[in-house]
Design a protein around this nucleic acid. Structure first.
Lengths: 128, 128
DNA sequence: TATAGGCATTCCAGCCTCTGGAAGGTCAAG
DNA sequence: CTTGACCTTCCAGAGGCTGGAATGCCTATA
């Protein structure tokens, strides 16, 4: 399977697949003409990566997850710890966004939103 | 006031202040020796920028907000629209994070987290 | 006056994760 | 033999800083 097939099979853009090879997440073989050749195991890994990325894991976390995935003597505790740390980061981000959301929602609700210049949003940004 | 004073006054790192000048958000004067000189209006703008960034507005949004802030003939509707669009983006991000959170939480809860290799998290990543 | 230190300046590189585009090689169909 | 769809590599840019190097200025003290 060449790169466009791998892209179709995994849902990842070809550019992204090349990038993942460049940073050493996958090592597809090459055919005589220099084209990448993706085996089933490469497709599996790419799919794995796509799902892990969709769950918000960083590339470095993905690298670790992939290593655990391939290590048949892994401890599930190691996977769980990674996932829990990531969950904590997600929770942090959500909390931060909710803070912004609450503040901004309040300001927006107070703003007349008409042709006049007076604006509580700008006032708040200017004066705290 | 020189750059370290401006940094203290606004809570922004000096590096960030230089960057904001580089991209044209502020235009501090220069003294004879080439040092930046920050007037009160510059400090106000930097403070404004710091608050807008803290609410998650992009740099380009900040540029627009600053322009509206300085335009005494603005319509508050323009500010409100910007803020509402940003609110929508925040809501999108939160929804996306919550999706990840729900999925990952479920997987983590199913994982024994012990010394054995069997792991629902990896299974899910591998097989959907 | 020499020196030390703490400021300031500019410029370049890197973070993260791709994404777009240019310039060129390869392959199958007509 | 050409066309068009692939493939390759390499370079640049996105956003928003952040770190570091090399260099210059200013002030205080010995």
């Amino acid at each position: 399977m060449n790169i466009s097939g791998a892209a179709r099979a995994t849902g990842l853009p070809a550019k992204t697949i090349r990038y993942y090879e460049e940073i050493g997440l996958i090592r597809p073989q090459r055919t005589a003409n220099g084209y990448r050749h993706f085996r089933d195991s490469d497709i599996h890994k790419l799919t794995f990566l796509g799902r892990a990325r969709a769950l918000g894991f960083s590339i470095e976390d993905c690298r670790r997850l992939l290593a655990l995935y391939e290590d048949k003597a892994r401890a599930s505790a190691d996977v769980k710890r990674l996932a829990e740390e990531h969950l904590a980061q997600i929770a942090d981000k959500i909390a931060q966004l909710r803070g912004m959301q609450a503040t901004l929602r309040e300001l927006v609700d107070q703003c007349a939103g008409d042709h006049r210049p007076d604006c509580p949003i700008l006032r708040d940004l200017a004066n705290g």
